[in-house]
């Protein structure tokens, strides 16, 4: 009995607590991922950000492919598929799955698009974009996070992601222009070099808020003539404002 209990505990620990091996990555915790997709779909249907009725199927499929638990520290891996942000060290977090889905959806990218990410963090957002068929260039300030994300992304097979440690302010001119840009690092302003590296017709998304919370998302759109507009989007349901609408 004791042996059975120990073995069961070991299996649970390996499944939930520690990083799974590369071999079982595609299938591990698939049921949890499926539940996470259901949650994302349900929240998106309630929230209707930017008038959209939900998240694009391709985005959800991409999220379903990425083993989120492989990209977070072992101590929080049991919660990897909860719809909540998680600490990843160095004062950084991995975003709530719904927010990742929403941001990816707002970028409106697809296979072959080139995407710049400023603030790699865990590498999860980059992995989702890569799963959509994008080529992703991602920059992380913190050397240890950059190393860890590069290793984890390689381990789960996200070949289309290139990680660089450094200052993301000036973007990645050698690889630009980009179809989309994600700025997950705290931004007091939209860096002019990033606007310059965005293709006409391209989109940029910036989440705004303290760690663990996204207060709103800013969607930056560059028109064909190079002019830029912004739109602030609430990721939560909050209507009506006056009680009379």
């Amino acid at each position: 009995m004791i042996v059975i209990t120990l073995v069961t505990a070991l299996v649970i620990a390996v499944t939930l607590g520690g990083p799974a091996g590369a071999a079982d990555a595609p299938v591990a915790r698939a049921a949890e991922r499926a539940r996470m997709i259901d949650t994302i779909t349900a929240i998106a249907a309630q929230t209707r950000v930017a008038g959209a009725t939900g998240i694009e199927r391709a985005v959800l499929d991409a999220i379903a492919q990425v083993p989120r638990h492989e990209l977070v520290p072992a101590n929080v891996a049991p919660h990897a598929y909860d719809d909540r942000p998680l600490p990843i060290g160095y004062g950084q977090t991995i975003s709530q799955p719904y927010i990742v889905a929403l941001m990816t959806d707002l970028l409106a990218v697809g296979p072959g698009d080139r995407v710049l990410e400023v603030g790699t963090g865990s590498g999860y957002q980059a992995a989702v974009l890569a799963a959509l068929g994008c080529t992703v260039f991602t920059i992380e300030i913190v050397p240890a996070l950059a190393r860890r994300a590069a290793g984890d992304l390689a381990r789960i097979g996200s070949q289309a992601v290139t990680v660089r440690q450094g200052d993301g302010y000036f973007g990645w001119p050698d690889q630009g222009p980009f179809d989309a840009v994600v700025v997950t690092a705290a931004a007091s302003h939209i860096p002019p070099p990033l606007v310059a590296q965005l293709k006409p017709g391209g989109r940029m998304v910036i989440p705004v808020g303290p760690p663990f919370y996204v207060q709103h998302l800013v969607l930056v759109a560059k028109a064909a003539d190079g002019s830029v507009t912004t739109r602030r989007l609430l990721p939560v349901r909050f209507v009506p404002l006056t009680g009379r609408r």
Binding site: G166, D167, Y169, S188, H189, P191, P192, P193, V228, T230
Partner: peptide, 16 residues
């Protein structure tokens, strides 16, 4: 990795 804090910088700003 220098700090560059500039709240309210215009979208058309060219100066960094």
């Amino acid at each position: 990795v220098p700090l560059r804090h500039a709240p309210g910088l215009g979208l058309t700003a060219r100066a960094v």
